[in-house]
Design a protein around this nucleic acid. Structure first.
Lengths: 139, 139
DNA sequence: TACGGTACTTTGTAACACATAGTACTGTAT
DNA sequence: ATACAGTACTATGTGTTACAAAGTACCGTA
């Protein structure tokens, strides 16, 4: 009861589903190592944290979508540069299709007119209040 | 190891984040009861299942975003017709903003050119294979 | 009174982002 | 050399939530 439902949580839920797609999208444009990706995502207003990114990359690698190679850095330890495998490229294409369909569907849905449907009022009736919650009759 | 990473799962993850938004969007256009919503979502290529929808509606109701009233049906038990509260309307507006930003960011990201960045090859070097996974050097 | 349809509820499971803490390697200053 | 700070990667625990599946309750009809 008394649920909070803060907007940040819902927003992060929205990001969640497309993270994988976005990260593949970044890597697809050229080899990248994790901090690169975090940075690029932040620029694009799509926040990702380390604790999210690393497991995700590992998952994608184990699934055969990504490979990496070590590249030494002159400012710290070596880096894992990731790139898409052939399989990863195919997977990306599928996700792109999914994203396009989805975005399209959502936009259509939210722009639909305040159409018809004023509830057919079959017998808008008082039911026995068999549950204790708020039973207010809208207008 | 040998992760499966089936596309269906990822697709459902994508849907996941925007479900709440879509459902609010449907209800916003007029009172609706669960089966209505399932139907409308299916038409829009956005699958939702009962076991998902009911808890979601309850959550939104408990958070004060929705109310409902009972309406008798002539083809079965009475139905809960849901509608947005004032708070729910405000919440929806926020989510709409979030969605727009997000969709925008993703589209920009995925349409970015195969830009620059051929990895600065500082010292693309063979590192000691300190882990047993695949260390293949791309190309 | 039994039965099929519709509506709603409950419970368990798995996926996953996130927060946080920890390990390991690097170069630089003391 | 030794300590320290910065960077890169890893590991663990927690909370949220979609989904699956089974269950309960109400309705009209045979």
């Amino acid at each position: 009861m008394e649920n909070k439902m803060n907007i940040e949580n819902t927003q992060s839920q929205m990001r969640r589903g497309i993270l994988e797609f976005c990260i593949l999208s970044v890597i697809r444009r050229g080899e990248a190592y994790p901090s690169d990706i975090v940075e690029e995502m932040k620029e694009s207003k799509l926040q990702v944290l380390e604790g999210t990114l690393y497991p995700l990359l590992t998952r994608l690698k184990n699934a055969g979508m990504l490979t990496y190679r070590w590249v030494e850095s002159n400012s710290g330890p070596p880096r894992k540069y990731f790139s898409l495998t052939e399989q990863g490229e195919a997977f990306y294409k599928q996700l792109e299709g999914t994203w396009n369909e989805l975005a399209n569907a959502v936009n259509k849905l939210k722009n639909k007119e305040e159409s018809l449907k004023p509830v057919t009022e079959e017998t808008a009736a008082q039911m026995p209040n068999q549950n204790p919650e708020n039973e207010e009759q809208p207008q």
